[in-house]
């Protein structure tokens, strides 16, 4: 405790906690109720794509989204710029 403590900016860790929670909970809610096979499906798709194109681990996104009555499997793959064939 120093007499100059009042000059330091007050750190608000509660706000940090709230921000972190909002992000992680939104993420977890979106994957809630999703089929359990999604992570494995994602990994296998990634392996297949990597046979042909070198992509990053986070290049494949697999989600189940609701479209009216139907569930739609939404797979998106972002390819690197100027994709070169693997092993070329």
């Amino acid at each position: 405790m120093s007499i100059f403590d009042f000059l330091k900016p007050k750190k608000n860790t509660a706000q940090t906690a709230k921000n972190r929670l909002q992000i992680i909970i939104a993420q977890e809610r979106s994957s809630q109720g999703a089929p359990d096979y999604l992570p494995l499906l994602r990994r296998e798709i990634l392996e297949v794509i990597r046979k042909y194109v070198p992509v990053d681990a986070d290049a494949v996104k697999v989600d189940v989204v609701k479209d009216g009555e139907h569930d739609v499997l939404d797979i998106s793959v972002s390819l690197p710029e100027r994709a070169a064939p693997a092993g070329a």
Binding site: K10, K11, N12, T13, A14, Q15, A17, K18, L21, Q22, I25
Partner: peptide
Amino acid sequence: RVENGEMLSIADVEEVL
């Protein structure tokens, strides 16, 4: 502790959940 900004407030928890 809420006043000190060290603890989530009632409103914070209600909003998050």
